[in-house]
């Protein structure tokens, strides 16, 4: 039973991270119908920025809380800036191109960013400082969960609530929903499409950065390649829930997190990544619209 709870908590933690990153995929897809292949790299860059800033601050003797806050802030700012720039360079000129062109461009961007970090930094794994503070009251539950896991789950929950409020109640959120429904119509009623798309990328990237900082300090090491696998898994989560649907991304994230956690815990840890990929393939084949998505028929 203890083992089960442990796996459950582990799955919840992973699921939170997948959900945070999946939101970026789902929001971008909802608005411009593009699988933003470089999204995983945004997350990786967020983690790297946090690592670099945290290291510099540590050397200058800042205290732990300040380091945590400043490093996270830097990660969010830089990831957003990268997301914004990538959209302007690789996707915006392709608004009217055939469907596969922006996807190929996105793959190119992803490869470029991976190697950019590889060349500018290192190909080795870097130890990531444990930025998340230890809570005293968690000592009692050490055998099933940790402070970091709790922190990850709580942060994710708070971020989700904020995001939902932004999308439901603000003017920008309304414009985003309108653009997702019908881009042309939104444009005709005066929504600045380019601005909305940029904002979507910025929000998605910021969420990825939060995910990046949290998971990196939980796992304790990063390298330039972490974005690729996590990116595909988060994409799986987004598709699982129904791409374009925000609650779907969260649900998909948790389901994928638990699937992985239990499958590796009870079946075999060698095939950890295979479970996620197999899940992805199966959903796309049998229920391409996802759990919460609507299946639209093609108009002739």
């Amino acid at each position: 039973m203890e083992y089960f709870v442990q796996l459950f908590m582990g799955g919840l933690t992973r699921g939170s991270i997948y959900a945070l990153i999946a939101l970026g995929y789902t929001m971008v897809y909802g608005i411009i119908e593009l699988i933003n292949f470089a999204h995983g790299e945004i997350y990786m860059i967020g983690a790297f920025t946090a690592l670099i800033i945290a290291s510099v601050l540590t050397l200058h003797g800042f205290n732990e809380i300040a380091i945590f806050v400043l490093a996270s802030l830097a990660a969010v700012i830089y990831s957003s800036a990268y997301g914004f720039t990538i959209e302007k360079i690789a996707y915006k000129p392709l608004r009217h191109a055939p469907r596969l062109s922006p996807l190929i461009s996105a793959i190119g961007m992803s490869i470029f960013l991976q190697n950019y970090v590889l060349l500018a930094q290192t190909s080795d794994f870097l130890p990531f400082p444990g930025l998340i503070p230890e809570f005293g009251f968690m000592k009692k539950y050490e055998h099933i969960s940790s402070s970091a896991e709790l922190m990850i789950f709580l942060t994710t929950a708070v971020v989700m609530v904020i995001l939902t409020c932004v999308i439901k109640f603000t003017k920008i959120g309304k414009a985003m929903r309108a653009t997702a429904q019908d881009r042309k119509m939104a444009m005709l009623v005066g929504v600045d499409i380019n601005r909305i798309i940029s904002i979507t990328f910025i929000i998605g990237s910021a969420l990825a950065a939060v995910g990046g900082v949290l998971i990196a300090s939980h796992i304790g090491q990063i390298n330039f390649y972490i974005g690729f696998i996590v990116g595909i898994k988060a994409f799986t989560a987004a598709v699982l829930g129904g791409i374009g649907s925000i609650p779907g991304a969260v649900l998909g994230g948790f389901i994928l997190g638990w699937t992985e956690s239990f499958a590796t815990g009870y079946v075999s840890s060698d095939y950890e990544d295979v479970f996620a990929f197999a899940l992805l393939v199966l959903i796309l084949i049998f229920r391409p619209a996802g759990l919460l998505g609507k299946s639209g028929s093609q108009k002739v």
């Binding site: 595909i232 990929f277 197999a278 393939v281 796309l284 391409p288």
Partner: peptide, 23 residues
Amino acid sequence: PVLRLRGDYLAIVTLGFGEIIRL
């Protein structure tokens, strides 16, 4: 199984298959 998928989904599924075979 995958060929009835839309273009971009097809791309991702083939990527998934490729990785599964390697793993």
